[in-house]
Amino acid sequence: MAPEEILKILQEQFPEDVTEVVTEGHHPLAVVKPQRWHDVALFLRDDERLRFEWLRCISGVDHLEEKQLTAVYDLHAMQRPDTADGIWTVRNEIAIRVNTDRDNPHIPSVADVWAAANWHEREAYDLLGILFDGHPNLTRILCCEDWEGHPLRKDYEQPLEFHGIPAVTEYAQSRPQH
């Protein structure tokens, strides 16, 4: 199915919540409001025409100028092979972008829709501070449990020391700001 058709189905089902679609380029996507994102995710997974059963990746983006944090969900729909020794192929491919306010970043969790979202959302929370409401265990996954701040935010300041280990040298402190 062409990405235009997928986005059309999505727009017909959720006319209020799909605010923008991008069909040009190699990364066609729909922008979904965070309030209804969980319902949209269930529809994408369970609709007979779509069957997006594989969440491949969640990318977190920090838009400092627009004061927004973004989560980009890459979805694949797999095609079962006809024969027993055939290979699975990608039938449909689409991306969903969910924008949220940078100062109060809340996005509903889809960890119950796709199990793969569990760790990806923890990573996005760890590095960008996006709060995924309804996540079963929203704790840090990469940094230490007592780490302060979210390192991939563009206004992040490196710590001067951590657990008694000097963290930033004089040279690194004089780095240019982003």
């Binding site: 990469l142 780490w147 280990i165 000097p166 963290a167 040298t169 040279y171 690194a172």
Partner: peptide, 15 residues
């Protein structure tokens, strides 16, 4: 990772 590695120890001789 010396400059931008926010979580990399700048030398294990600090530990």
């Amino acid at each position: 990772y010396f400059k931008h590695g926010y979580h990399v120890v700048k030398g294990v001789d600090l530990v």
